[in-house]
Design a binder for these strands. Structure first.
Lengths: 237, 237
DNA sequence: CGGGCAGTTGAAAGTTGTCAATAGTAGTGG
DNA sequence: CCACTACTATTGACAACTTTCAACTGCCCG
């Protein structure tokens, strides 16, 4: 497997950073990007104590980010799929504040932030796109805030399933059948629930005929009913 | 009251956008800022349907942001005090996704975003500061995520009180005695609790001798014990 | 001065968490 | 290649925290 897929040849370019850069300038972006060796399941991309040097775009696999409280318990703060950018929470502090860990074998593009800032000075559309990315992150957090604050356990699980489905579709994959890259524990942790609760909800969704799940393989059988659990999502697909 | 306090003369400049701009260039920032008439309590600064034109720095008073679900119920997503910048969630969509409403009489500086982007092309430190601001917002959302996901009602209320306290101190005001700009309803909504729960917790904190509260006036009597409720905050002040 | 909203308090109900036990799965190493 | 082990997932019973419903007080603004 070549580790030197340029942005030009990367199938993710329509959904990744290159979408903000004119073809003529794509080389400039391409030149600052480092493509590292694949991460194995469980390996860290960065840790909370590391200096903040770069942001990362997922090329394959999946990454989870999490923070540790002082008591040492973990809070999963996000799941990142191919084409998505992570690591932006470190900009203001010069060191990362969260940890990033591969949920499965994953490859990432490393984008040194200082150079990205320089390039953003020259390419306004890149600057704007990066503002947009961060703005999207904030917006997603607002929705998560509502999810955690107002929605019951069923709605939370349904919402995550539909979010993953939509993000698969964005990459041209099936929005109906896909594989969850994360464990039930990670799902529970992310959604502020107990694992047992998540497990029971998966069972109930299947009993209702809304979902088929075998381990991490899921098939969405009745999107409407899953949305119905959270009508706010009715139109999202 | 003059509505034309330049950044030069503004007491908030050490904690607001100007902190990222060299004195020699401050005029350039100052020139793009609009200082509107004060907002009365309950007035909107912007609404979710509005076009996204600008971000806003609070000069006095307090603003809350909120989103409405499709069922029409409100989720308070943030409280903004003097020196804090809001409205950045609209960058990616060209229209605002949240609403911003004055909790009390408030004045704000309006910073047209297109011009801010242009200026950021010329002043690298301004671009960086703006990235930092958004990064901070994301980081705060991560902490809120943990709060809503893992902490009980007591910890959530304590955490909000201590956050407000720290933000007062940042402006050189008392971190011990201050006035809450928001209602118990807003606090409850923001923290994902029922008003009754918040009210009971205020009562209990007072019975424990940790807090004095008369309406919206609060005095923190035992910061340690409030932190103790959420040891993650022990060192924040 | 009055009405409506903000705030407080009590009792009951419900959703979710905790504890415990069991089954299934995947990675490891012989 | 298979067995072992540790982790992931599921299910049930019970407990706990928080919500909901209801009533009441007080205050602010019109």
């Amino acid at each position: 497997m070549s580790q030197h897929v340029s942005c030009n040849e990367c199938s993710l370019s329509p959904v990744c950073l290159p979408l903000a850069v004119a073809p003529a300038q794509l080389d400039q972006l391409d030149n600052i990007i480092h493509r590292g060796r694949p991460l194995k399941r469980g390996e860290h991309l960065f840790r909370a104590s590391d200096n903040f040097e770069a942001v990362y775009a997922v090329r394959s696999g999946a990454i989870k980010t999490y923070v540790l409280s002082d008591q040492g318990d973990e809070q999963v703060t996000g799941f990142y799929l191919p084409g998505e950018v992570l690591g932006m929470d470190g900009i203001s502090t010069a060191h990362h504040v969260s940890n990033a860990k591969a949920l499965e074998t994953a490859t990432v593009c490393e984008i040194p932030f200082a150079q990205l800032e320089n390039l953003s000075q020259k390419i306004p559309s890149l600057q704007h796109h990066f503002f947009s990315l961060m703005s999207n992150e904030i917006r997603a957090d607002r929705e998560l805030h509502m999810l955690l604050s107002k929605k019951n356990a069923d709605d939370r699980v349904a919402s995550l399933l539909l979010s993953l489905s939509a993000r698969h579709q964005r990459r041209g994959l099936s929005s109906r059948v896909f594989r969850l890259p994360m464990s039930r524990y990670d799902i529970a942790n992310y959604l502020g629930l107990a694992v047992e609760t998540v497990s029971r909800i998966f069972t109930r969704f299947q009993q209702n005929g809304w979902l088929r799940a075998e381990g991490r393989e899921v098939e969405i059988l009745d999107r409407g009913k899953l949305c119905g659990h959270d009508p706010a999502l009715e139109d999202s697909l």
